[in-house]
Every structure is written in C-alpha cells, then in structure tokens.
C-alpha cells in the first residue's frame, strides 16, 4: 500500500466529504422532514395502474437524475479528473448506479420500509408494475442493511468514493493509477472509522457490500435487457440518452 501521511488522508477525507455534500441531491434535513409523507393507497394504485412502459420510463428518468449528481461527485474527487478519460468513463459506467444504491440509504425510512421517490416516500408495492419484484426487494433490503450500519455522511461519502474508484473494473487503461487512488480512499475511510471509534467489523461489513452492489447492478442490466427485448421502441425513443449510454 502507498505511504500516505495523516495530513494527506485528512485532506482527502475532507475533499470527498465536501464533494458528497455538494452533490448529494437531497439534504438530510429535507429528507427527514418528508418522512411522514408516504404515498396514500389511491396514489399507490395510481402508480400500479400505469402502463408498464410509462413506469419504466419514469424510473429511468429518476435514476438518470440521481446519476448526474454522482457524475458531479466523481468530478470533484481529488485525482479523478487526472485519470485518462477512458478510465473516468469506465469507472462511471460501472460504478455510478452502485453509488446511487448506496445513496438510497440516505432517503430510506427503515420504520416503514419506504424510500423517497417522486416527491413522497414509497414502499416496494409502488413499483409492482415494473415486473421486477426481485430487484426491487433486493434494493430495499440493501438500503435497509446499509441503514443498520448507521454511517455518518462523511463515512458514506468515503465509501461511495471507494466504490467509484474500484480498480478491478474491466477495460481500465491505467489500472495502477486507479488502484493507488482507491487504496488512499480506503485508508482515509479506515482512518475516519477509527476516529469515530467505530469497530473494525464495520469496514469488513462494508467490503462485503461490494459484491452485493455488483449483484444489484447486474440484475438491473438483465431486467433492462428483458424489458428492451419487448419494448425496443420505447427505450429508443423515450429513455434518457445518458441512461442508454450507461446501460445500453
């Protein structure tokens, strides 16, 4: 592992936390203020009675909005823009949705198993018409398990950066450069967890999330290709271009 001074780790942690706060889409206070606003039964039924393709399109739009914030987050991480453009794209293609899944825990209410979506808190039944109950259940379970770790915003920021800077993604041109950045981020995360007197096991639990995140994203890709096989014209004409670039 690289030799890094404490100062450097502190500086990186500060940079990543600031980048996260500037690009987190919703402030914690806004989210907490809205938790009492869950969709009413007739609103849930309204989502359930939408045509499948309309709901898919709505979700693609929401995911794309969230991803745009993640792109901004990446750009502000020290070192990211110094990578070659191929690697910036490889990392975002593979990792931006994973960061959206991580960020989902900020907007998740464990008490009633709901997540902030389209203006209110929504349970999994809202997404029924998408026809991918497995993926939805897994995403909710993931958010719930992330919530149970009670990470601070700083820790969440560093974990998101650690995931985004995964050096084992396919097609990286300067793998060792990404590797160094990721190692530094991991050290900064470790340092932060120690500073907050969190046990060693938190880091182990976070590292275990890596494969869960990859599973979630590959299930998303599979679900999208199944949808596209039936509705190719809807995807082509109505899905956000960025979404198609990332997952097409």
């Amino acid at each position: 592992s690289p030799t890094v001074s404490m100062d450097e780790l502190e500086h990186l942690a500060q940079n990543i936390s600031k980048s996260h706060m500037e690009t987190c889409q919703y402030l914690q206070e806004e989210l907490q203020q809205s938790t009492w606003q869950t969709f009413l039964q007739d609103e849930v039924e309204c989502y359930q009675s939408k045509p499948k393709e309309v709901m898919w399109q709505l979700c693609a739009v929401k995911i794309t909005e969230a991803i745009q914030y993640v792109v901004e987050f990446a750009k502000r991480i020290d070192g990211f823009m110094e990578l070659c453009q191929n690697d910036q794209i490889v990392l975002l293609k593979a990792g931006s949705l994973e960061v959206v899944f991580i960020r989902m825990c900020r907007a998740f209410d464990t008490q009633n198993n709901t997540v902030y979506f389209d203006g209110k808190y929504a349970g999994p039944e809202v997404f029924k018409v998408l026809g991918c109950d497995d993926l939805i259940t897994s995403a909710y379970d993931f958010a719930k398990s992330m919530c149970s770790l009670h990470l601070s915003e700083d820790e969440l920021a560093l974990f998101s950066a650690f995931i985004l800077l995964s050096s084992d993604r396919s097609w990286l041109q300067e793998k060792s450069k990404v590797e160094k950045l990721q190692q530094k981020t991991q050290l900064a995360l470790q340092h932060m967890l120690q500073k907050h007197q969190r046990g060693e096991e938190i880091l182990t639990k976070l590292i275990c999330k890596v494969s869960t995140l990859r599973g979630l994203c590959s299930r998303h890709t599979e679900t999208l290709s199944a949808f596209r096989a039936v509705y190719p014209d809807i995807v082509r004409a109505h899905f956000p271009p960025l979404y198609k670039e990332l997952f097409g």
């Binding site: 502000r76 823009m81 453009q85 910036q88 293609k93 960025l242 670039e245 990332l246």
Partner: peptide, 14 residues
C-alpha cells in the same frame, strides 16, 4: 459513443 458522459465530464463543475 458516450457522448453525453464526455460532455458531463468536460463541463466545468459549478
């Protein structure tokens, strides 16, 4: 390929 992503990366951070 990746036209939008290129564009987003090139836009200066606001």
């Amino acid at each position: 390929k990746h036209k939008i992503l290129h564009q987003l990366l090139q836009n200066s951070t606001s």
